[in-house]
Structures are given as structure tokens and as C-alpha cells.
Design a protein around this nucleic acid. Structure first.
Lengths: 205, 205
DNA sequence: TAGATTGTTAATCGATTAACAATC
DNA sequence: TAGATTGTTAATCGATTAACAATC
């Protein structure tokens, strides 16, 4: 697993490279260059070459990169050359939108179980999936071998959900709430806060 | 408008400070410190003091910061001491989730109009709002004075929506798609890509 | 070969942290 | 006063960019 000391900021850019390559592949372009990738992603060519160089040599001097092999390489590096089963916590409007988003499937993830706290929802279905009580999370996550959780509950419930996820053996959390989650070592959180995004945009208006 | 050269990375953190302060205010804590804020946000106290120092002196040596006044100051700086009317493009499951999310209202934003391309949706309602044809975007956005747009359409339609938004006088775009949007100078984009987030998490699994 | 583009090194740039005098 | 915490400076750290020899 080599696992050297790759800067996190580099790891966060790899999915963008992968995404751009997949678009190019779908357009039938077999070869690209750091320049072209940079133009598409609004980044410098040097940065892309530098980032990739952390993981190996994937290009050919004078020619560039073969799109499909590089995409597959990045999928291996990111561990998305498979379909990860994911626990979705929160069966509200946001949970429904996440469940119905096809992009998850296409890019390595599959919602495997849905949980909610609301007694009116537990036992019902969200799409094809039955909604379980969050109390069943540790048991079910263990059984199903879930390592990834998506938190789509009200901010006020987010920390208790994070605690339950950590107790359930979850090691990666995608947090859709504005709460800052405190988690034990070994658990990683990625925050999605659209309103914070909007608020940083209005600074410039 | 002073508008000096604040690093963008600092601007992106201000909403986090504001959010933490609003939580503290709701907990009835009248005073805080850079240390306490840092603990809550998993950041160093020095960074918080440094960031705030770009905008003025808001604290009292030996004592800390008054929560409510600092929150209001940050709201002024971020221009969220008002309710911005926002155009939502995309009336699918994601659009519905965004429309029903109360956090927007609470933090300075109000969905003022919804647009979609789908003829089956145009004319119907999403919540309290009638769904308009995206073709009506330039006209309506002008009339309503909209400056912010949220793109919640399939990735394949995102660039054409961004083009329409730019033509409509929109200057800030919250992009929920995985597409990288190319926009004219003067238009700013904030990207939300949950799958990219997940993919950077699986790197560590 | 001539032209293009890689991978990498060194230089630059910018952000974070540590430290502390000032001050409440 | 003693203790606490600010705002700021200087030092450190890390990331980005520029440049170029290697090479296809």
C-alpha cells in the first residue's frame, strides 16, 4: 500500500482529474496533455504534472497522457475501481435527492442502506430501500461491512449521528450539515456546506 | 467599499466563524475567544485571530470576543445582513431539497424563482413557486434583480445554464454539478461536488 | 529531424504558526 | 495586581510556478 505522504490538497484534486478524463473518454479523445487538462480545469499544467508525479510516471514526453489508462490509474489510486456500499442517514428531501442521484453509482458508490430517526419514516421505503431506525446502525453497518456514511439530517442531530457512525465502524463521513463534527482518530470527515459557499460568494457582490 | 486584497481562502473561512458564533449565541454564550472558536472549528487560535485582523479589531485583550457583535460584523462583511433573492435552476429531486432547506433562509438567502427546461415541469409548482422555462431566465432575472444562481441540473446541461445565467446578469453561481463551468470575468463560481468529496475520502480507506 | 510535452528541480510565492508586547 | 487574551510581527512551513533537460 506504499501510502506515502501525499498532501491532502493533492488528494482532493485527483477526483477532478479523474472526472475530466472520464468526460474526455466519453468524447472519444484518446490522448490529452497537462496543458489541455489544465485549460479544462482552470489550473496550471505544471500543477497537474506535479500532482501526478506523486504517484508515478503516467505520460509520454512529446505526446501527453493516454486518457483511458490514466483514468483507470486514478481510479485505482483513489480506490474507486469498485462500488463502495454507503450508509445514508436521513430520509428527508435531501436524502431522497442523494439516493436518486445517478452520479454516485457512476463514480464508485452505491447507497446500501437508509436510516432515519423519525418513527413515521422507519419501516417505509425511500425509493427501493427500506428505511431503518438509526438505532440499528451499528448492527447493520457491521453486518453489511459499511465504511462510508453520508449525513443528511438536520444540523442539530448531526453530532449524535456522527457518534453513532463512529461506533459503527464507519471511517469516512460525508457531512451535508453545517455542523462541525467531532470524530475519533481514524475517522475522516468531508464537509459540504452550500450556504457557506453562498456566503463566501456574496462577499464579492 | 474598502475591498482590499483579502486572500480568498480567508473569505471562505469567514462563514465558518459566523456559523460557530451563531451556534454560540443560540446557546446563550455572550463571550468567546479565538481559542474556543478554534477548538470548535478544529483550527488554530492564531489563524482565527489572523483572519479577523484583516477586517479590523473586534476583540478585547484579556477577555475575548463578544459573540453577537462579532457575528453581526461578519454578516456585514459577508453581505449576508440581508436576504438575497436567488434563482434556482433545476426542479428535480435536488432542486426540491434545496428549496425546502430552511438553512438558506436562516443564513441570508431566499429562493425567488425556479427554472427548468423540462416542458412537463414548466408551469407546475415546486413548493410555493411556479416553475419557469429557463428561456425566461434573462428576462425574469433582470426584472427581479437576481444576482445569484444555483445550478441543480444534470452535468450535461450545466454549461448552457451557466451561459444563460451569465447573460442574465448573474454574478455568483453555486454549482451543484460535477461540470467545470467556464464563465466570463466578473462571474464567480463555487463548486459543490459531493462525489469528488467521497472519492477523496476513499483514497484513505 | 523538429516539435511537443513530460517529469523534476529550484525559485517564488503565500499561508500558517509561534511568540510576545500590549492591554484589559 | 495577576491572569488571560488580543493583534501583530517574524519565522516556518508548504504549495505553486517557472524553467529546462530528457525524450518521444
Amino acid at each position: 500500500m506504499s501510502a506515502p505522504d501525499i498532501p491532502e490538497i493533492v488528494v482532493r484534486r485527483l477526483p477532478l482529474y479523474l472526472r475530466a478524463l472520464r468526460v474526455m473518454a466519453s468524447e472519444g479523445r484518446p490522448v490529452t496533455s497537462s496543458r489541455e487538462l489544465g485549460d479544462r480545469l482552470h489550473m496550471s499544467a505544471a500543477q497537474i504534472r506535479k500532482d501526478l508525479s506523486h504517484f508515478g510516471e503516467f505520460g509520454t514526453a512529446g505526446r501527453g497522457y493516454d486518457v483511458e489508462p490514466l483514468a483507470e490509474e486514478l481510479e485505482r489510486i483513489l480506490n474507486v475501481d469498485r462500488a463502495w456500499p454507503v450508509a445514508l442517514i436521513g430520509a428527508g428531501a435531501l436524502g431522497r435527492a442523494i439516493l436518486h442521484y445517478e452520479g454516485l453509482q457512476e463514480r464508485g458508490f452505491r447507497i446500501a442502506a437508509v436510516f432515519d430517526r423519525d418513527l413515521d419514516k422507519i419501516g417505509r421505503h425511500l425509493g427501493r430501500l427500506r428505511i431503518f431506525d438509526v438505532a440499528a446502525l451499528p448492527e447493520l453497518a457491521g453486518e453489511m461491512g459499511l465504511e462510508i456514511g453520508i449525513v443528511a439530517v438536520p444540523a442539530s442531530a448531526a453530532q449524535s449521528v456522527a457518534d453513532a457512525l463512529a461506533r459503527s465502524g464507519i471511517r469516512a463521513i460525508l457531512n451535508y450539515t453545517s455542523a462541525i463534527l467531532h470524530v475519533p482518530d481514524g475517522v475522516r470527515v468531508y464537509d459540504i456546506d452550500p450556504v457557506a459557499g453562498l456566503q463566501s460568494l456574496t462577499y464579492y457582490l
